[in-house]
Design a binder for these strands. Structure first.
Lengths: 156, 156
DNA sequence: CTGAAAGTTGAAGTTCACTTCAACTCAAGG
DNA sequence: CCTTGAGTTGAAGTGAACTTCAACTTTCAG
């Protein structure tokens, strides 16, 4: 009972529902050995993966992208701290970007509250990042591109 | 043609798909007059609403919550800048909170990259906000509760 | 007046991230 | 051995936020 965790234990220790863990497995985000009776037994290192998954979701990254990132971990050996650090660093950039964006949004919103606009015609909140400089007549607003799924993370 | 916008015009000027605008209307987020032939005609002020909606989504607020906020605008008269400012101010708080949270996440992630942990046992990234101080044995991790939809905003 | 472009509707489909369910099987204490 | 709790599966359901479709109807420039 030292190395392998049951799904119940992994769920309890990770705070992630069993159904979600099975779902992650189906998506190839985590792996599990099986007992003779076909029950899942998780290596302790899977805890780390689950942690990474949830943290990444908080940053607003989709499971699909998370899977890609996890795929970049060495498959053969157990990932070292350095391996994890490498993966996390790219997340860090996204986090920075996200924070920067929210900060801008806040400042813009402040400006709009100040000027009472939100008028779309002039407020740069409606034209974020100046990315729509010349897109035909009339102002475009708010969301230039499809958007990013911001995670579904109601971490209250 | 000075006051009323067709759905095509509102869509073009707001960058929001027509189907999305109709959807917003169904949810009670925006309103439209109708022509004799039953076509929608939007008052210019609706542009402001749409802007507010998209901005709010970026902050990670659900359409349902946005609707509630919009409901707090005066129904009878056209909302003044002050009305908008009042609504925006509560958003500003959420923004601040969100930025604070992401900042913490980043710092935690930095710490974890530094120490190579993500080990769930000791890293406080796994125990965000210290909210799980005493929840049985073993560490809990990452996400205390289900999650918020941070906007699925595929505005193409 | 006419034809094309723009608009209307309800119903159904889509994606993401899960959860729920039913019907079983396994594991382990008494 | 037996019961009970934990685990298994595939299929279907959920909710948010839209999009797509088909079958029409309006609007408006020429």
């Amino acid at each position: 009972m030292h190395e392998a965790l049951t799904i119940g234990q992994l769920s309890a220790r990770s705070g992630v529902a069993q159904s979600a863990l099975r779902y992650y497995e189906r998506l190839g985000l985590i792996r599990a050995e099986r007992t003779g009776g076909n029950q899942r037994r998780y290596a302790r290192t899977e805890l780390r993966r689950v942690a990474f998954i949830r943290i990444s979701q908080q940053v607003g990254i989709s499971l699909d992208e998370i899977r890609e990132a996890l795929d970049s971990l060495p498959a053969s050996r157990t990932p070292t701290p350095d391996d994890w650090a490498a993966v996390s660093r790219t997340w860090r950039e996204r986090l920075d970007e996200k924070i920067r964006l929210l900060g801008k949004l806040r400042d813009d919103l402040d400006g709009c509250i100040g000027c009472g606009c939100l008028s779309l015609q002039r407020c740069h909140l409606n034209n974020p990042g100046d990315s729509l400089s010349g897109e035909g007549p009339g102002a475009r607003l708010v969301l230039p591109r499809p958007a990013e799924s911001d995670g579904h993370v109601t971490a209250s």
